[in-house]
């Protein structure tokens, strides 16, 4: 969803779902809205626009949240080389608590979903938030394993975590509730460790000044 931009701090995201989840988390944790949350409509357009974001008038901070997908190392290395061209000195591995770095004028932040360590995506992050004693999640997983064994799954295996979280969501009180609303409706446990790390990263990046 396109937003009217009004801040000198930008958070670039791959998609609409990411955007709504971040908004829900900001709302829940009362994170000061000092930055624009921008849906870049895909990883390619996100990476393409990084250098241009740095040329925006009075730009202060650029945050980036991307999915690790199948290979977090590869994802980090390609993003790292793009950022190094802009004058950032970056570590070999992305820190577990998310990256925050400065060049001459601009602060940059990077978070790789789900947790800067594992392969995966936003939906894996969401599945961390399912309460530990949840009785449905094991059934969702075994059901999906079962249909995969029978080759009945239409989804590619790389998107299994999407299938898991959306199946789980559809078995809650109000089937069809989108991911962001599940945070608001407290189906999900946002006190989970990874979630708190993400909140800290957002606050340190955008609201620490």
């Amino acid at each position: 969803m396109r937003v009217k931009e009004k801040h000198n701090q930008k958070l670039l995201l791959e998609g609409n779902d990411d955007q709504h989840v971040i908004w829900a988390l900001c709302d829940k944790y009362s994170i000061t809205e000092s930055f624009d949350v921008i849906d870049c409509e895909g990883i390619t357009k996100l990476v393409d626009q990084i250098p241009i974001r740095f040329k925006q008038s009075n730009i202060e901070t650029v945050g980036i949240i991307i999915d690790a997908d199948a290979d977090i190392k590869k994802r980090w290395i390609s993003l790292k080389s793009a950022l190094e061209l802009l004058g950032f000195d970056l570590p070999i591995d992305i820190p577990l608590e998310g990256l925050i770095a400065k060049n001459k004028n601009v602060t940059i932040g990077v978070w790789i979903m789900p947790n800067n360590n594992l392969n995966g995506m936003l939906e894996d992050f969401m599945s961390f938030l399912v309460p530990e004693d949840d009785k449905l999640l094991p059934i969702v997983t075994s059901t999906l394993n079962d249909i995969e064994a029978k080759k009945l799954n239409s989804y590619p295996l790389i998107h299994k975590s999407k299938a898991i979280i959306h199946t789980w969501l559809s078995w809650q009180e109000d089937p069809g509730t989108p991911m962001d609303l599940c945070i608001t409706k407290r189906y999900l446990n946002t006190n989970e460790q990874t979630c708190e790390k993400l909140i800290n990263w957002l606050n340190n990046l955008f609201n620490a000044k």
Partner: peptide, 11 residues
């Protein structure tokens, strides 16, 4: 072109 396509303010 990228800025115009993606609606990024250049002014």
């Amino acid at each position: 072109k990228i800025a115009t396509d993606l609606n990024i303010e250049t002014r």
